[in-house]
Simulated scan of single mutants.
Amino acid sequence: MPGSLFREGRVWLRCQFHAHTTNSDGDPLPAALCDHYADLGFDVLAITDHWHVTDVEHDRIVVIPSSELTADAPTAHDEAEVLALGVGVLPESLEPFPGIEALAAWIVARGGVPFLCHPYWSGLRAEDVLVAPSLAGIEIWNGGSEVMQGNGLSTTQWDDVLQQGRMVMGLATDDCHTPGEDSGHGWTWVRSRERSGAAVIEALRSGRFYASAGPKIRDVVIDETSVVVRSSPARSVRLRSGPWDGCAVNAELGMGNWRGEERERDADGLITVARFDLPEFWHWARVEVEDERGRRAWSNPFELPGELPARA
Score class of each variant (00 low, 15 high):
residue 173 T to D: 15
residue 37 Y to F: 11
residue 169 M to V: 08
residue 253 L to R: 15
residue 294 G to E: 02
residue 92 E to F: 07
residue 53 V to L: 00
residue 29 L to H: 09
residue 65 P to E: 12
residue 210 Y to K: 11
residue 283 H to A: 04
residue 257 N to R: 14
residue 59 D to G: 03
residue 34 C to S: 00
residue 145 S to D: 15
residue 43 D to S: 04
residue 111 G to V: 03
residue 25 D to F: 11
residue 305 P to Q: 07
residue 82 V to F: 02
residue 267 A to M: 15
residue 94 L to Q: 13
residue 219 D to H: 03
residue 189 W to H: 11
residue 282 W to T: 14
residue 115 F to W: 06
residue 59 D to P: 03
residue 211 A to M: 05
residue 290 E to W: 06
residue 93 S to H: 12
residue 98 P to R: 01
residue 16 Q to K: 11
residue 72 D to N: 13
residue 282 W to D: 11
residue 276 F to S: 05
residue 45 L to Q: 07
residue 292 E to N: 14
residue 1 M to N: 09
residue 166 R to A: 07
residue 154 S to C: 02
residue 195 R to E: 12
residue 210 Y to L: 11
residue 235 R to D: 13
residue 156 T to Y: 03
residue 237 V to A: 00
residue 299 S to W: 04
residue 53 V to Y: 00
residue 178 T to H: 15
residue 74 P to I: 12
residue 41 G to K: 05
residue 176 C to H: 13
residue 13 L to W: 01
residue 93 S to I: 11
residue 249 V to H: 01
residue 36 H to D: 08
residue 97 F to H: 04
residue 163 Q to E: 10
residue 182 D to H: 01
residue 235 R to L: 14
residue 199 A to V: 02
residue 132 A to Y: 05
residue 308 L to P: 13
residue 150 G to I: 09
residue 276 F to D: 06
residue 76 A to W: 15
residue 288 E to R: 10
residue 186 G to N: 03
residue 294 G to M: 01
residue 170 G to P: 10
residue 190 V to K: 00
residue 47 I to F: 05
residue 219 D to M: 04
residue 199 A to G: 04
residue 255 M to G: 03
residue 216 K to Y: 15
residue 57 E to T: 11
residue 72 D to R: 13
residue 200 V to C: 01
residue 303 E to A: 14
residue 15 C to S: 04
residue 24 S to M: 00
residue 54 T to Q: 06
residue 251 A to G: 08
residue 138 I to H: 06
residue 30 P to Y: 03
residue 69 L to D: 13
residue 83 L to T: 08
residue 272 T to C: 09
residue 122 S to P: 04
residue 152 G to I: 05
residue 31 A to V: 08
residue 296 R to S: 13
residue 106 W to F: 00
residue 94 L to A: 13
residue 303 E to C: 12
residue 98 P to E: 05
residue 165 G to C: 02
residue 290 E to F: 06
residue 201 I to Y: 06
residue 219 D to C: 03
residue 8 E to L: 04
residue 62 V to P: 01
residue 206 S to C: 05
residue 190 V to D: 00
residue 311 R to Q: 11
residue 171 L to Q: 09
residue 263 R to G: 12
residue 143 G to L: 05
residue 148 M to H: 13
residue 12 W to F: 15
residue 266 D to H: 07
residue 267 A to S: 14
residue 189 W to F: 08
residue 11 V to P: 06
residue 229 V to N: 01
residue 247 C to R: 12
residue 305 P to I: 07
residue 63 V to T: 11
residue 30 P to E: 06
residue 38 A to K: 04
residue 122 S to V: 04
residue 283 H to G: 06
residue 21 T to R: 04
residue 243 P to C: 02
residue 291 D to G: 06
residue 201 I to F: 07
residue 304 L to K: 08
residue 155 T to E: 05
residue 216 K to D: 14
residue 135 L to I: 06
residue 183 S to Y: 02
residue 255 M to D: 07
residue 286 R to H: 08
residue 98 P to C: 04
residue 285 A to F: 00
residue 199 A to K: 04
residue 65 P to L: 09
residue 218 R to D: 12
residue 119 P to C: 09
residue 300 N to W: 07
residue 77 H to M: 09
residue 49 D to L: 09
residue 260 G to H: 01
residue 308 L to W: 14
residue 306 G to S: 12
residue 233 P to A: 08
residue 17 F to D: 10
residue 26 G to Q: 05
residue 292 E to Q: 13
residue 92 E to K: 07
residue 220 V to Q: 00
residue 215 P to K: 02
residue 271 I to P: 00
residue 281 F to T: 15
residue 306 G to F: 10
residue 212 S to T: 11
residue 192 S to W: 03
